[in-house]
Nucleic acid binder design. Structure first.
Length: 826
RNA sequence: GCGAGGGUUCCCGAGUGGCCAAAGGGGCAGGACUUAAGAUCCUGUGACUUAGUGUCUUCGUAGGUUCGAAUCCUACCCCUCGCACCA
């Protein structure tokens, strides 16, 4: 086998593609297809094999669709603002911009060497003011529409990062970057986007039928829609709303628990209980987040009593550590008989437990109104109401509605829906992010920056040290009020990096637009994304945010789509040799350039998609890559010797069948299966002395989506027209797929198998094989005599069973059956 | 605890009711070529079976449905990943 100079071939074709702008696209030319991979966060360590897999998956699809005649938009850009870059830059004592741009340069070189067919002219970086200007613009539009608000609330704070963290950046109570640093809870004034205004629509997945079920389920859980009622409990002459999913248990309420973090807790505490409550709250504040999770349910009496609106019972109000301040009013009506958490609490503080649902198989037993030491746990199932006044005897499910109606009539409550999803905290106290376009003026208060003054640029000369560098940048902070022209100070918070990635797919449609966020005509043409590729770890963050932004921009009249992408594909994670997630710190990173230096990038691409189905997690191992290399080398050698002429019927059948099947496999993103079929086709081609040009081209075209460089090279060799990357995807003809030939082939294989089987059993060397076939089958075997000989490597003679003259010393010919010749070995 | 995904022959990995002892690759073994090694090619790779047949065992474990199960159902064990007191 000849050695292939991969390096030279790769360079040659990458240059040609770039020079001829092969993959540049314009809107309007026929049917579009938009393939997008989640854009990378350019880290200094560059891209590893996992990235390479991700982009290869997209590239194969983009090439496939392009060859199918679609006008394919396949862009790349960089999500370059964010905390890790800032931290890395500080560590290296360089400006984040310098650091980031260096990283991006490196990324581009790496990505180009993978042979990815991006339209590079559309590339952008989110740290470019021309990009983040539009983050600010969207922020202002949201502000205008009342979707932005600033509020004081408890937030996660990393003392080492010196910033607020999003929930997803807190792992087990520790910071995601500093895994030994406890995250603190601080009460801060922060910016929020009202994503909850879109919660109902976000919870509707009707248009996402080509998204993985897992993702939709994760989002659904995250959004956490629950049906129930808001019930008004009177405490100290004031009505406090409380959310419950079980209004049917309202007669069982024996106490209330308000969150220890509730902003209005003080109003509930009586003078006698003041000290006790304060001690309790202080104690909670002094323990770490992690410890809180392990704590028992604890509480303390506030001194106040609530009135149960259904029966006017007077019940004590406790402050508790297990009630969330920002969900369902921050207070719960406790039904210890039918809620395990309330039960635990009641047991601990010896509170009354009242049974109001007679559950399941339990016969209606004596209902005790006092604490029941015998009870071990709450009954949380359905049942029949007992001890519930006029609702006794009603099925709990029905009672929910009846009790709600009863409360509604008396204006004591109403049917509601509650969500787990909270508003999106987008402010960060860090430098490397999009500045929030707000100014504080002594006279006018909080003033949004007018559109014409955008972008608010990040100052380049800042001091890194303690806290947010923007706070110490006087040139940044000090400004004029856009309204009164008086002295004003800029907001120093920047936006969460997820703001940048929530709409980037739209900017690819019109990346250089200086006047507008994008030209509506262009986005109308390209959007939505037809295939979006990325990891499932983004299910609850990025993929919710991007849906939110899409809906918002639609409501501004800028888009006519409801969802960002039609189809979503989650590629699997490529682990290191050790089976762990690839990371620099673990030292298990596999670099594509290292692999491609050894085997060629086409080999690496082919291998990556051969290992397993692209949606499965796999461990990297170089072991199998030799197989891919061998295949490419064989193909190369084959093109040296193959003669262009006519294809046998068998080859025609094989080629057409392969086209048919692989087209489906690629469409389904089952590249691994496609590659196998392509290799099997090649094995058949190899057997032949001459092949029709069209069939040879079909083979090469299919190969080209996986191995674009070597395919271009071979395409050139056989004088193919133009670039194979821009050639037409082969079509198949059903009528050329010859079932009869397939069957005959099976018969031949079976025969060869039989002969080997006999040989292995008798363990004797034989030189000659005689086979006896049914007369009507003789022709088939005669036609394939060379093939059989080649396989068994013995001389062969074929007789029909009714041949007058035949060599058959053992009388084996009698054993011949249809499709199964008799065999004699000598 | 809740939710999701998964456990396949030496290894990686296809396979969701019969065509399955189960694709493909890797490894290993044997053979051809070669002075030899390597490369390449061919064959084998659950067990038994001295003429191609057949039988048995196997797809996490144990049961079940079915004429028939790796594939469907039930229970359990193990692994991975999300969310974790959401009332």
């Amino acid at each position: 086998m000849k050695e292939i100079n991969f390096k030279a071939i790769e360079k040659k074709w990458q240059n040609k593609w770039e020079k001829k702008k092969c993959f540049q696209v314009k809107e309007g030319k026929g049917k579009k297809f938009y393939v997008l991979e989640m854009f990378p966060y350019p880290s200094g360590s560059g891209l590893h094999m996992g990235h390479a897999l991700n982009y290869t998956i997209g590239d194969i699809f983009a090439r496939f669709k392009r060859m199918q005649g679609f006008n394919v938009l396949y862009p790349m850009g960089y999500d370059s603002l964010g905390l890790p870059a800032e931290n890395a830059a500080i560590k290296q004592k360089v400006n984040p911009k310098t650091y980031t741009e260096k990283s991006i340069k490196n990324f581009i070189v790496q990505q180009k060497s993978l042979g990815l067919s991006y339209d590079w002219d559309r590339m952008f970086k989110t740290h470019d003011p021309d990009y983040y200007k539009w983050d600010q613009w969207i922020f202002l539009k949201m502000f205008e529409k009342g979707l932005v608000h600033k509020k004081q609330s408890p937030v996660n704070w990393c003392p080492k990062c010196n910033t607020v963290l999003a929930n997803e950046q807190v792992h087990n109570g520790k910071c995601w970057i500093h895994d030994t640093v406890e995250v603190e809870i601080k009460y801060l004034n922060q910016w929020y986007l009202k994503i909850t205004d879109y919660v109902e629509e976000l919870n509707d997945f009707k248009e996402l039928n080509k998204w993985p079920e897992v993702i939709k389920k994760l989002q659904k859980n995250w959004i956490g829609k629950s049906y129930g009622a808001e019930v008004l409990f009177e405490i100290n002459k004031e009505k406090w709303p409380v959310f419950t999913t079980r209004p049917d248990t309202i007669y069982g309420v024996t106490f209330m628990v308000v969150s220890a973090q509730h902003s209005r807790l003080k109003e509930l505490v009586t003078d006698e209980q003041k000290i006790e409550v304060e001690n309790f709250v202080d104690k909670l504040n002094s323990v770490s987040e992690e410890e809180i999770e392990q704590l028992d349910k604890q509480g303390v009496f506030t001194g106040s009593y609530a009135i149960n609106p259904i029966n006017k019972e007077k019940i004590p109000v406790y402050a508790g550590n297990f009630v969330l301040a920002d969900y369902g009013g921050g207070m719960v009506m406790a039904v210890p008989g039918h809620d395990q958490r309330d039960f635990d609490f009641a047991k601990k503080y010896n509170l009354q437990i009242k049974e109001v649902i007679s559950g399941g198989n339990r016969k209606e037993t004596q209902v005790s109104l006092t604490s029941q030491p015998s009870l071990k746990k709450a009954y949380i199932g359905e049942g029949v109401l007992v001890n519930s006044g006029k609702f006794n005897g009603i099925q709990s499910k029905r009672a929910i509605n009846e009790i709600i109606r009863h409360l509604e009539k008396r204006k004591l409550g109403k049917k509601t829906i509650n969500f787990r999803l909270k508003d999106w905290l987008i402010s960060r106290q860090r430098y490397w992010g999009t500045p929030i376009p707000i100014v504080y003026c002594d006279n006018c208060g909080l003033v949004p920056i007018p559109e014409k003054d955008l972008p608010v640029k990040l100052p380049e000369r800042v001091k890194f040290g303690k806290g947010n560098p923007l706070e110490t940048s006087s040139s940044f902070i000090n400004t004029k009020c856009p309204k009164c022209k008086g002295k004003a100070k800029r907001e120093t918070d920047t936006m969460d990096t997820f703001a940048n990635s929530s709409w980037y797919y739209l900017r690819y449609c019109d990346p250089q637009n200086k006047k507008n966020i994008f030209d509506k005509k262009k986005t109308d043409y390209w959007c939505p994304v037809d295939l979006y590729i990325g990891g499932k770890e983004h299910a609850c963050m990025h993929l919710i945010y991007i849906r939110f932004y899409t809906k918002f921009l639609r409501d501004l009249g800028l888009l006519k789509i409801n969802e960002p992408s039609i189809r979503l594909f989650n590629q699997g994670m490529l682990h290191g040799l050790d089976g762990e997630k690839m990371s620099k710190s673990k030292g298990n990173v596999v670099l594509p350039e290292k692999v491609s230096k050894k085997y060629g990038i086409d080999t690496a691409r082919l291998f990556l998609v051969s290992i397993a189905s692209p949606d499965k997690d796999v461990d990297w191992s170089e072991k199998g890559i030799q197989g891919s290399l061998k295949f490419i080398k064989k193909v190369f050698d084959y093109f040296d010797v193959v003669k262009i002429g006519k294809s046998s019927l068998k080859i025609q059948s094989k080629v057409n069948k392969t086209i048919k099947e692989i087209t489906q496999d690629i469409e389904n993103l089952r590249y691994n299966l496609g590659v196998i079929k392509l290799r099997q086709l090649f094995e058949n081609l190899e057997q032949e002395k001459e092949i029709a040009r069209k069939d040879l081209e079909s083979f090469l075209k299919i190969l080209s989506v996986f191995c674009p460089h070597v395919s271009e090279e071979l395409w050139e060799k056989i004088n193919g027209k133009g670039f194979i990357s821009l050639a037409k995807w082969p079509v198949f003809y059903e009528r050329k797929i010859n079932k009869k030939l397939e069957k005959q082939e099976e018969q031949i294989e079976k025969l060869v198998e039989d002969i080997y089987n006999i040989l292995s059993m008798i363990k004797e060397k034989k030189k000659k094989v005689y086979i006896y076939v049914l007369p009507n089958e003789k022709q088939i075997y005669l036609e394939n005599i060379d093939l059989i000989k080649k396989k068994i490597r013995l001389s062969l003679e074929i007789f029909a069973v009714n041949d007058k003259i035949k060599y058959d010393p053992d009388g084996k010919s009698r054993k011949a059956k249809p499709g199964k010749p008799a065999v004699y070995l000598e």
